[in-house]
Design a protein around this nucleic acid. Structure first.
Lengths: 226, 226
DNA sequence: CTTTGTTCTATTGTATACAATCATACACAG
DNA sequence: CTGTGTATGATTGTATACAATAGAACAAAG
C-alpha cells in the first residue's frame, strides 16, 4: 500500500520534526493504542519516509514517556492513562498557578495585547459553540501565559502536560456551560495579570484548573467512562 | 585521533542510550559549553560510533531543551542557566512537596526499607565528608520518593529537573554543614512518610528544598559567581 | 571599494545496506 | 507427549552512501 509512484527518488528536506509530531498526534488521539507496538518499517511505509527519521521520532517519544522502548525488541505505545491525566491536573494546579504569578510580573505589552485578542476570539467561538476552535484558543491562552512567565523550564513542562491532557480538555470544553465559565475565568485571570496582581493571578489560575478538572470528572462519571 | 585499530568492523550493540547519556553528561558538567555547536561527525569520532546514534541523541537532547536545533544548520548547546536553576528550585518546592505527600500515601514496605538503608549510608558518608557519595545518595533518596509517589508524570518531570540542578546540588552539598542539615531534614521527611502523615511529609519536603536553595544562593554570593 | 554572483567546502537530512538479536516454528531425542 | 536444540524470519542497531543546504571564499563588474 502506498508505494512510491514516481520512479525517481526525491529527497525531501527537514521532515524529521513533522514525523515526530505525526506519530505523537496519533498516540495522543488514540489511533495508536496503548500496548500496540510500533514497527519501524510499518511506520516508515505509512508515513512515507525511511526508517532513520522514524527512529529519531521514536527516541523522542521514549523520552517523553509516550512509548516504552525495549532494546532490540521495539517500541510499545504507553499513551496517557486516566490516572496520568488526573495527576497532571493536580500538578498543573500548582505549577500553572506559579506560571500566572510570574506572568503577572514579567508580561510584556505585546503579550497583554495578544491575550486581549485571544479573549475576544474565545468570546466569539464560545457564542458560536464551536468547540474545536474553543480548544485551540484555550491552548493559545495558556501558552501565552507560559511564555509570559519568562521561564524556560516552566514553559517546557507545562507545554508538554497541556498536550497530554488535550483530549481531557476537549471533553470538558465541549460543554457550552463549561466553555462559558472557562471564558469568565480566563477574563478574570487576564485582569489580574494586567494590573500586575501576581498573587491574585496565581490563585485564580489554580482555581481555574481545579474547576476544569471538576467538570471533567463530572463528565466522566456521567458517561460512565473508566 | 582515535582511529579504529582493528581492521575488522565490530558491530556493537545497543549503545544508543549510552551515547545520549554521555553527551548529556558533558553538557550538564559543562564540558560542552552553552553556545558551542555540536558537529555530528566530530561527536561520532569522539565517541566512536557512527552519526546515526549521535543524531538520535541530539534529537532527544533537543526535546529536553539542553540543545537548540536549527534545521539544516545544526545543534547548539543551551545548557542550564543560573536562572533555570533558580526557577527549577521554585518549581521543585511545589511539585516535590506533592511527591512527598503522595509517597506517604502510596509507599510500599520495600521502598520504606530502601529509604532506611539510604539514610544509613547518607549518615556514613556525611560523617566521612565524602561529598561525591553524598550527592549520589541524595539523588537516590529523592528518586525513591518520586517512585513511591506512584505517579509517572511526577516521576518524569522531577527526575529530569533533579538532573538539571545536579551541579547546584553538588555545590550545596559540598558544605559539610549543609550536608549534615540535609541529612536531618531527610530523616524527618522519612519519619513523616513512615507514619503516613502526608501533609507533614509535603511540608517538610517543601521546606527542605527551600533551605537547599537558600544555602545554594548563599554559596553563590560568597563565591561571587553569576 | 562595494556589490553581486559563483564555486567550493562543511555539515545536515535521508535512504539504504548489513550485522545482531529475538521469537517462533519445527524437528528430534527422551 | 515433552523438552531441547536448531533453523528461519521479522525486526532492531549501526554504519555508510548520497542529496541538499548554508556559509565562506573568491572573482568579476560597477
Amino acid at each position: 500500500m502506498m508505494a512510491l509512484n514516481s520512479e525517481e527518488v526525491h529527497y525531501q528536506r527537514s521532515l524529521g520534526g513533522q514525523v515526530f509530531e505525526q506519530i505523537r498526534e496519533n498516540i495522543l488521539n488514540g489511533r495508536y493504542k496503548p500496548g500496540e507496538s510500533l514497527i519501524e518499517l510499518r511506520l516508515s511505509e505509512e508515513i512515507g519516509v525511511s526508517r532513520t527519521p522514524i527512529r529519531e521520532a521514536i527516541r523522542q517519544l521514549e523520552l517523553e514517556g509516550l512509548v516504552h522502548v525495549v532494546p532490540n525488541k521495539g517500541a510499545i505505545v504507553s499513551g496517557v492513562s486516566d490516572k496520568d491525566v488526573d495527576d497532571i491536573y493536580t500538578i498543573r494546579m500548582l505549577v500553572e498557578g506559579l506560571a500566572a504569578q510570574w506572568a503577572a510580573q514579567n508580561i510584556t505589552d505585546r503579550e497583554l495585547e495578544e491575550l486581549e485578542e485571544i479573549l475576544e476570539l474565545e468570546d466569539f467561538y464560545t457564542r458560536k459553540k464551536d468547540s474545536s476552535h474553543i480548544l485551540q484558543i484555550d491552548s493559545r491562552f495558556h501558552q501565552v501565559i507560559f511564555a509570559a512567565s519568562k521561564s524556560k523550564s516552566l514553559m517546557h513542562v507545562l507545554g508538554t502536560f497541556h498536550q497530554y491532557v488535550r483530549n481531557a480538555r476537549n471533553t470538558s470544553l465541549s460543554y457550552p456551560d463549561r466553555a462559558a465559565e472557562a471564558l469568565k475565568e480566563h477574563t478574570a485571570i487576564y485582569e489580574a495579570i494586567r494590573i500586575r496582581d501576581s498573587e491574585k493571578a496565581g490563585e485564580l489560575m489554580t482555581d481555574h484548573i481545579m474547576k476544569a478538572r471538576a467538570s471533567l470528572n463530572l463528565r466522566k462519571q456521567t458517561r460512565g467512562d473508566r
